[in-house]
Structures are given as C-alpha cells and as structure tokens.
Nucleic acid binder design. Sequence first.
DNA 1: CCGCATCCGTAACGATACTG
DNA 2: CAGTATCGTTACGGATGCGG
Lengths: 146, 146
Amino acid sequence: MSRLQKGNLHPVPAPAAPTPIQRWDSMGFSFSNCPVRDVLDHIGDKWTTLVLLTLQTGARRFNELQRAVPDISKRMLTQSLRSLERDGLITRHVFPTKPPAVEYRLSQMGESILMPLGALVTWAERHHEQIRVARQQFEQATDTLG
Amino acid sequence: MSRLQKGNLHPVPAPAAPTPIQRWDSMGFSFSNCPVRDVLDHIGDKWTTLVLLTLQTGARRFNELQRAVPDISKRMLTQSLRSLERDGLITRHVFPTKPPAVEYRLSQMGESILMPLGALVTWAERHHEQIRVARQQFEQATDTLG
DNA sequence: CCGCATCCGTAACGATACTG
DNA sequence: CAGTATCGTTACGGATGCGG
C-alpha cells in the first residue's frame, strides 16, 4: 500500500525551511523532567479532565462523581482523584459520619487550570466538524489508491 | 494503610453542595462521540503535542523531527504524523527526489490550535513548581501515617 | 458509602530488522 | 531518506470481591 503519491498533488512550497530547529533535549527539560509533560499526562488520561470539568460547578462526593461521569469505574475514579489530589489540583475532605462521606473540590490551582482547559475545549467544539470532514477525506484518499 | 484521616485536619466547609450537578451523558455527547475527547486523546498521547510544538517554527522533514523530539522512535513518529495528518492538523508533502524527501507542516487548523495549547503550556510552566511541592507534601503525608 | 486489592485481557509502546 | 513489519514487554483499564 504505497502512500508515496499523497500530498504533492498541488503546488508545493519551498523544500527547505531555514528557521532554526527547535530541540527539546537541549533545553532545560529533556523529558523525564518536562513540566509540560507532567501536565499533559493528566489531560491525556481518559478521565481526569472530565473530573475537573465536573468539579467546576462545585464540590462533589465520590458517588456523585461516578454518576456524573458516565462509564467510569470505581477503580479509575479513585485513581484519577488520587492523582489530582496528589498534584494539588483538588482537595479531599472526609466527614467522619457513619457511613463516611467524602467530598472533593477544586483547589485554587485546580480552578486556575479551568481557563486554559476551557480554551482547548472551545477549540475542540469549534473544530470537531472540520476534523470529522478531514478524516473522511483522508480515509477516502487512502482507500482510492489502495 | 488507612487514608481516612487525611484532609479534614482543618475546618471543613459545608458538607453538601446545592449546585446542580453536571452530567455528561445527558448532554449531546455521551462519549463515543465526544468532540472534546477527540481532541484530548491527541493531546494526551505521548508525542503528538511535541510534534505540533516542534512544527510551530516551520516545516520539518521526517528525520529532522526525529532528531528534534528526543527519544521518539520511528514507529511512534510515523504514527503521530499519520494521526495528525488524518485529522487535518498537518499536511504532508513528498518531493520525488532520490532519495525521497518528505516535509510536514502545520495546516491552518494546526496553527490555530497552537494558542489554546500554548495557554496550557504556559499554565504548566507557571505551576509545575507548585505541583512538585504538592507532590512532596502528599508523599510525606501518606508516608508519615504508615 | 468509600475505596483498596487482585486478576486478567487488551492496547500502547520500544527495539529491531527490512524495503523502495 | 522515509518509512513498514514483526515481536516482546509493559502499562492501562475493566470486573469482581473484600474491608473500614
């Protein structure tokens, strides 16, 4: 399945880009200690973002969260909450009632991430249709030269 | 290892939050078709974001990218590039030279994601120290209660 | 009610070798 | 140079059951 013919069907720009290349290892963070990575790892995993967004309307209890975020398992919810608590994005309050009640809420830092996160969400909503179309075109293009 | 005592050592706020809960399944996107998820999946996986950021200074060839993004394997680079091309965030140009040269550059849509992405990166840089401290405290707290 | 422990299947990822 | 193919390992994620 050769894909070699793809992408140069229209006039191509100049081959070489003279701009200096950006190398990420020559900078401070070579990767195990990349601050960006740290954050993106959170955003990346399936659930943490949803949890953050759910908490933006106020503190929630464990089972409330599980009901709010559909299809999340207890295991994953626990893990996500731990991870967020560990990084100081949410706080955890235990009410020593019987049976116990536990409440999670955004910390100040947790609230501060809502804006950049919201920007990304907005972008997603604005472009997901365009992405969908791009995908269709891509599939079609790869199919027709198969 | 009981964690029950954690989080309620200081005065706690009111137990119940009266704000209406946000449910994600009752909205348009119930999840397999969540536009946000689509985007975050990209951000999440280890490399695509780095590739996007590397391309922000101009078009790059395959091996340039591999050198710029340290420790990425050819396999993963190819996969990331395909995925981004598929979604229309980057374009691919083949120069039929010998040996062949292939150039990747951000599409218009690809460039448009740089700003929300940059906001997140900025947030990360601004808070990674605070996160580091939070983690230390967390570890210490969990350690000291055996 | 909250959440940890265990088991287990799958998918992501890395390393290596090979092709046009 | 720019990939593809294959393999082995590891990490993720779901299901279930137990414990405070």
